[in-house]
Computed example of a mutant assay.
Amino acid sequence: MFEFRLGVEDLAATWFAYSPLQEAVLGLRARRRPSRYPEQQPWIAGWRERYAALDTELLDVLTAPSGFVPDFLTPRPAVPRPDFGGELARMARTPPEVVRADLLAAYPGGGCPLPPVLAAPIDDPAALAALTARIAEALEGYWTRCLAPAWWPRARSVLEADLAHRGRLLSERGAEGLFADLDGRISWRDGVLRLTDSTPVVQALGDSVVDVAGRGLVLIPTLGGLGAQTDIVQDGPPLITYPARGRATMAEGLPGPAAPAASPAASAASPGSAVPAVRAATAAPAGLVGLIGPARARLLMLLAVPASTTELAHRLGVTPGAVSRHLGALAAAGLLERTRHGRRVLYRRSGLGDALTAGRH
């Protein structure tokens, strides 16, 4: 168990961020553990050939069998929305002694020995520096060929929606409500934030008390985690990663078992009158469909999690213009709220919209 002791100044300095490099690295878990990440499998199937052409000898072992990755691969974001290239450059500058320590922490031996590609340079600083450069090159190729074209825009939308939700929760329910909603492993009481991780590797480390001492706390949503986690070794500004809300929507509108493709009839429907089916979980109640129509009912069901016009259009397989018209009508009726993040506008159901989708109209 980890205990983070936060004073008033630490709560004031707590902030949220997401990390494209972390998403790339932690996303490799989905290849090793497909049953735990069903929403990622259609994406992985779609880029199978491109991935096979990469440095898979190295990429396949960046995630240990335990699910851990060496900490140097996921440096703490310096800003709320860093770019992948900047993070990768920071990672590539990691000192060899840090790389060595983090590799050994992720692969502690016994039933989890270092793979040969990582073990060979472990005691040679120059070879470790070369390995780090090779890792950076492999991750850049993975990002460019597999993630950046379509996966990352979808993932970024989910992460942005999570940040919007957390900001709203903090303003409405304060720190206690915020921490209670992050993950079942996290609890908050009397200025102490507790993170209980039952993973054997973490349990073997014993309990750890972290005095935040004015440094603040960074909270990072991720698509690559099944539960809240912190660094294996806490020696920098503290952070906690937690599973992002809405991560299951990553598979919506994609072919595969997790998200059936739309039927020909649905695909041929006009954008203004109907939308393709994406998931059974978003099916609207018949009463709601009768009240506002099928297209707007489907949008309202999807907007339990904030999303942008472009993201909704992609998920539903219609034009952004068609989605925009429906969003405008729903917002004018008081069923949606808008939140601006830079140049992007996210929409989310209002209280009235929640009541309608729950059948309380």
Rank of each mutant, 00 (worst) to 15 (best):
P20S: 01
G109M: 11
A307W: 06
W151L: 09
L88C: 11
E140R: 15
R81I: 05
R48L: 02
A358S: 11
R145P: 02
A281T: 15
A269Y: 07
R279F: 11
A105R: 12
L147Y: 04
S263F: 01
L104H: 03
D123N: 09
R29I: 05
P80M: 08
L170R: 10
L73M: 06
A244Y: 02
R48A: 14
Q203H: 11
Y242G: 00
G141H: 11
T94V: 13
G317Y: 01
R245I: 07
P95I: 13
A295Q: 11
G246D: 02
A265R: 10
A313W: 10
V158T: 04
R189K: 09
S267P: 03
E23H: 09
P255R: 09
Y18S: 02
G334E: 05
P116Q: 07
L178G: 04
R36P: 01
E87L: 13
G67E: 08
G67I: 05
G328R: 11
R215T: 13
A286M: 01
T144I: 00
A126Q: 04
D102P: 12
R247K: 01
C112A: 07
S273D: 09
A269T: 08
A269F: 04
R344H: 14
P115Q: 04
P149T: 00
L288N: 01
L114I: 13
E311T: 15
E337R: 15
P65C: 12
L178N: 07
R348A: 14
